[in-house]
Amino acid sequence: MKCAAFTAEFTAYLDQELGASRRAELEDHLSRCDECAGDLELLRGAARLVESNVPEIEPPAALWNRIQGRILPMPAPDARGPAWWDLIWSRRWLAAAASLVLLAAAGVGVRGFLARQASEDDLRRYMSEYVTTREAERRQHLEIASGAAGTPRAAETAGGTGYNPFAVRDTSSFDNPFRSEEQ
């Protein structure tokens, strides 16, 4: 294993935060690598220098007096109601529940919208088929009607009037194949 893998563990080693097996591996490496051993000694020396040269300040007596002066009028901690973050926490659950309800409502709404869209599509398709069928029937009627008078366009031209496919025509001149000879 390379030195870098061990040097990264030096601080944890000094702080006694390494597991037994890892510590044994590192100590084995240190016994064979002078460079790493020297590096560790520098780190250990710096740690000693820091610890022995960091003056600590003492809490002044007045500090407790100030704290006591503020907490004396307060009720006992256990006698107090839930902390504000507890309320927020409980409200958070409330908000989560409300969000779920909203999501469910939105789901129902989307579903209804899609169903309505589907029925509208059906209606549109039905209307389209109806119009196509009607158009085909109209054309068929026109063809039948123009059987004697030529094409509708010809009849229109001959009559000099606008063509009305629904106008009642005089059918007396039509040959009636079912007419009896006596008539």
Partner: peptide, 10 residues
């Protein structure tokens, strides 16, 4: 330390 006392119940 004032806050710690206040919130000790939590």
């Amino acid at each position: 330390f004032v806050t710690v006392y206040q919130k000790l119940g939590t």
